[in-house]
């Protein structure tokens, strides 16, 4: 009997270790843990604030940091106890914060957040400049890193952790030691009149599998007056950017790059497969409804698509055939759909 129990425990443990786990927020107060191996919901955690948006897993996969209550609260989610450990109180008295952009350092002890502070005075609101703060995860103490232009939606941290990359109207490279923007990659503000502005929406952040933070862009060629689309691919480790033009526009919300960096998949009212080496769209599948976000399995064979309705759809990346649909307890809306690190 004892041997049987040990065997069962070992099998269960190995099964759990092999499972690829993903997290996404659901309406009105939840985080869903999705098992990407078995294609089922592995757990659900109640958040204190409503509508979780950004999700950042800790390097050990034990915690997830999430923004809730209209991007105003910062909650620490314990994945082992399936509960909220605490809420990081980073809002100074008399202020209201809106958080767009959250990233954790490699040790997992320091968060960087992009906040839009509003001072709530008795007779008026005063909008302070958007800025990036570093947050000590243990104490919740904040420190201003740098001010950034309006429009930043996402943050990334280079592998050497010297530079933060803020994705807004342009890409801003912030030197963490110098506390200032030291470089800019132009998207909307193109230096040449012959280049059209690249319009991006960096709300969907999923680059765990490839290290490439990929966002669709739209532009109008100022010479030919033709509308064009493509992908802005940011290598998070070193901050290098690759702009991949794909031709006539198709409405897209987000994209994810395969682990081998050879393919990308983009989604909105259609699902697109993109060959990044040939820089062309290879497959298009019409979706019956809008979906916001996709993530990809570790082996690159399965695509998990969600957002905008209470479902996760599993697709075969080779054929774009729908394999399975999993119902969720609520709408994910604009939430990150993050892969948890292997434990």
């Amino acid at each position: 009997m004892k041997a049987l129990l040990i065997f069962a425990f070992t099998v269960a443990l190995s099964f759990a270790q092999e499972s690829e786990l993903y997290v996404l927020g659901v309406h009105p107060h939840g985080i869903v843990i999705f098992d990407g191996t078995r294609h089922e919901i592995a757990g659900q955690i109640q958040t204190r604030g409503r509508a979780p948006k950004e999700l950042v897993p800790s390097p050990d996969g034990k915690f997830v940091y999430t923004t809730t209550d209209g991007r105003a609260k910062l909650e620490v989610v314990n994945l082992e106890t399936r509960s909220i450990d605490r809420v990081l109180e980073i809002t100074p008295p008399g202020y209201r914060l809106t958080i767009y952009g959250l990233v954790l350092n490699g040790k997992g002890d320091r968060l960087y957040v992009h906040v839009k502070p509003v001072r709530e005075l008795i007779d008026r609101y005063v909008v302070d400049p958007p800025q990036i703060w570093s947050v000590d995860v243990a104490t919740g103490k904040t420190q201003k890193v740098a001010e950034v232009p309006q429009g930043v939606a996402a943050l990334a941290l280079t592998k050497d952790e010297r530079k933060l990359i803020a994705w807004g109207r342009d890409l801003y490279y912030i030197d963490v030691a110098q506390n200032r923007i030291t470089d800019t990659f132009p998207l909307m503000n193109q230096p040449s009149p012959t280049a059209g502005a690249l319009n991006t929406l960096a709300l969907f952040i999923q680059f765990e599998r490839s290290g490439i933070f990929s966002i669709p862009y739209y532009t109008r060629d100022p010479i030919t007056a033709k509308d064009l689309m493509g992908l802005v691919n940011l290598d998070v480790a070193n901050g290098k950017v690759d702009v991949v033009e794909l031709g006539s526009p198709i409405p897209l919300y987000s994209a994810v790059v395969s682990p081998d960096r050879k393919h990308a998949y983009a989604v909105m009212n259609q699902l697109l497969a993109i060959d990044l080496e040939k820089k062309r769209i290879t497959q298009i599948t019409d979706l019956e409804r809008t979906r916001y976000v996709a993530n990809i399995s570790r082996d690159g064979k399965r695509l998990f698509v969600s957002g905008a309705a209470p479902f996760i759809h599993v697709y075969d990346t080779a054929t774009l055939q729908l394999i399975k649909t999993i119902e969720l307890p609520g709408d994910p809306s604009v939430t990150s759909f993050r892969a948890l690190p292997a434990r």
Partner: peptide
Amino acid sequence: PMACSLMFTPGWEVDAAGGTAGLCQ
């Protein structure tokens, strides 16, 4: 522009062709 964007606040209610087919469905 196509789809949503951070460049226009508030957003718009037509797609790039002036219709609604390119919006969420």
